[in-house]
Simulated assay, not measured.
Amino acid sequence: MKSLLRFFPSALVAMVLTLFMTSCAAIGDIFKAGAYTGIIGVVVVLAVVIWLVSKLFGGNRNP
């Protein structure tokens, strides 16, 4: 049960992001804002994905 409770917040954030952020609207806004905004957006999204994967599959480092 404890592992499920540790997994739930990360899964909830991922689910909310997938449901409320449509790709067409996000890409359209990025093209309107410019190339640098798109590059920064991609870097931020990659950082969040890497962080989520490390939280989900990082293992238990506390003894």
Rank of each mutant, 00 (worst) to 15 (best):
K2Y: 07
K2W: 07
S3T: 13
S3K: 12
L4I: 07
L4C: 00
L5N: 07
L5E: 10
L5C: 01
R6H: 05
F8R: 04
P9H: 06
P9S: 05
A11G: 14
A11C: 11
A11L: 15
L12W: 09
L12R: 12
L12V: 09
V13F: 12
A14V: 14
M15W: 14
M15H: 07
V16I: 15
L17D: 00
L17H: 01
T18A: 13
L19N: 12
L19C: 07
L19P: 00
L19W: 11
M21Y: 11
M21W: 10
M21D: 06
M21N: 14
T22Q: 11
T22R: 13
S23A: 12
S23C: 04
S23P: 07
S23V: 11
S23I: 11
C24E: 11
C24T: 14
A25Y: 02
A26Y: 05
A26Q: 06
A26W: 02
G28T: 01
G28V: 01
G28I: 00
G28C: 00
D29P: 00
D29E: 08
D29N: 10
D29M: 13
D29S: 08
I30Y: 03
F31C: 03
F31G: 02
K32H: 10
K32D: 12
A33W: 03
G34A: 06
G34H: 06
A35S: 12
A35L: 15
Y36Q: 09
Y36N: 09
Y36T: 13
Y36M: 15
G38E: 01
I40S: 10
I40M: 11
I40E: 05
G41R: 01
G41T: 12
G41W: 02
V42D: 08
V43F: 10
V45S: 14
V45K: 10
L46Y: 04
V48C: 08
V49Y: 05
I50K: 14
L52D: 00
S54W: 04
S54L: 12
S54Q: 13
K55T: 10
K55E: 15
K55A: 13
L56D: 00
F57A: 03
F57W: 05
N60L: 01
R61S: 10
N62K: 12
P63G: 10
P63H: 05
